[in-house]
Write a protein that binds this DNA or RNA. Sequence first.
DNA 1: TATTGTTATACTCTATAACTATA
DNA 2: TATAGTTATAGAGTATAACAATA
Lengths: 152, 152
Amino acid sequence: MSTSILDQLVEVSVLLERDMARAFAGTPLTPTRAGVLWTIDQAGPSTQQALAGALQVSARNVTGLIDALEVGGYVIRTPHPTDRRAVLIELTPLAEALVAQMRRDHDELTASLLNAVAPADRAAATRALTAIAARLSQLVAAASVPAKKEIP
Amino acid sequence: MSTSILDQLVEVSVLLERDMARAFAGTPLTPTRAGVLWTIDQAGPSTQQALAGALQVSARNVTGLIDALEVGGYVIRTPHPTDRRAVLIELTPLAEALVAQMRRDHDELTASLLNAVAPADRAAATRALTAIAARLSQLVAAASVPAKKEIP
DNA sequence: TATTGTTATACTCTATAACTATA
DNA sequence: TATAGTTATAGAGTATAACAATA
């Protein structure tokens, strides 16, 4: 075969990353920070602990990300109504407009990619991607068990 | 439709990244540094300028990456035979063994992913990925032209 | 004058550990 | 005692700009 499915997936992944970088080039947001806004938009006002869980990063990291987004006017910290230790992170109207634009871009890209695929191939491609995602999930999950790697 | 092709691709990309992290967890190498070794292995002994081009990062960044790999005993800097300004970066036997292992892992993963896809879907999936990569390339290339983005 | 690689400087993302204020 | 968030510290990865040595 000419190119393996894995190599093609890696290529598409790299291009997806570049496309994301392109999408944020016109904003003062880094992709990571934009991802935080996206997550807050989906989850609603959240504690930093909740965000750390959703984003799978450390609490310390969330502090830094929220600090930067707060300075930029994208989020505000408000006191948690019942737990005085915690804060709730909320989007400002500026961030909401940005997320709305991100969602439009996302939908546009989705349509563009779907149109690039021949209609006869769409169902098979979807099944293939689902199968690959499932297999990768298995591999990643299995790695939670002690991973051995004898080459130093 | 249940899940869009784009969302599935993003999911697979995330899983691919996690799997890569898993693969390097047993080595003292970060994914970025392992990628440098991979590139040198494919290109042969290279100047840092060539590596900066191949990796699409700044020359300064290459200096840091090679510094770290040199300290770890993975590469050596040798004088360029004809250009006294430049150095050639070469893999040590240690790094060559590591790259050989990476190649074995890569082949294994390729086979595993291919096996996860139903034989009847393979050709269509390959065509779909090719089409998607082509479309993404267009989009990324078009972005080299001044990208406008009115949302601040 | 142009190129190769380095030093200087800085920002982002990430982590663990120790600490404060609360539960 | 446990949890939410911060400060302290550190390491990767990335960039631009200035500079030395060499083409």
